[in-house]
């Protein structure tokens, strides 16, 4: 075995071990945010509607109105704030629930939000929300992936290596994005 290939394998193996955890995080989040048009990758949002009696103008802004509405819809969470975004709407903010009351009709809309624990954390890191030192960690990870990709090409010699079957598979891997670029970017 050529001496440099031995070291290439050692480095590929050890960097691969270190990169495994981060690769899993980026892969999970990659799938999650890839489908952002179809679902929310960070939150599970549930919407409910219910009906209460319309709110008389004389009650708007009065003490006890908020609690009365919450009692009617069975919401027991702690109220964060109450806002009137327009003259016919009242918004009650409860922990993990936003309640919109249409004052004139009595229609109540609830939007309950739950964090997608696990996936949200992977998105947090993948999309570099924390910034700061994590930017450097992510950059080093990207360089490590580049090394793994290139070193992987030269790990094996002979017919299965880059001079044989490996060349065809590598060409296929390059061709796939090129075809999509031609079809979706240049021709679309």
């Amino acid at each position: 075995m050529v001496y440099w290939r031995k070291w290439l394998r050692i480095l590929h193996r050890d960097i691969g071990y270190i990169a495994a955890g981060l690769t899993v995080i980026y892969a999970i989040s990659g799938i999650a945010v890839n489908h952002v048009a179809d679902w929310n990758p960070n939150y599970k949002i549930q919407n409910f509607e219910s009906q209460i009696e319309p709110i008389a103008d004389s009650l708007i802004g009065k003490e006890g109105l908020t609690q009365s509405i919450l009692d009617q819809i069975g919401e027991k969470g702690k109220v964060k704030d109450v806002v009137y975004p327009d003259s016919s709407t009242m918004s009650i903010f409860v922990e993990d629930n936003t309640i919109t009351v249409h004052l004139k009709t009595g229609l109540v809309e609830e939007e309950k939000v739950q964090s997608r624990t696990g996936i949200r954390e992977t998105n947090f890191l993948h999309l570099n929300v924390p910034k700061k030192l994590w930017t450097w960690v992510a950059d080093i990870f990207a360089v490590a992936l580049l090394f793994l990709a290139i070193s992987g090409l030269f790990m094996i010699k002979g017919k299965q290596g880059i001079t044989g079957r490996g060349a065809w598979l590598t060409a296929l891997g390059i061709l796939i994005p090129v075809v999509f670029l031609i079809v979706y970017y240049y021709m679309d």
């Binding site: 960070n42 939150y43 964060k80 704030d81 903010f93 409860v94 993990d96 936003t98 939000v113 964090s115 999309l127 570099n128 929300v129």
Partner: peptide, 14 residues
């Protein structure tokens, strides 16, 4: 986009 990500838990807070 991406510079600051506002969390949904912020709703109702000052």
């Amino acid at each position: 986009d991406g510079e600051i990500v506002f969390p949904m838990e912020a709703k109702g807070k000052k």
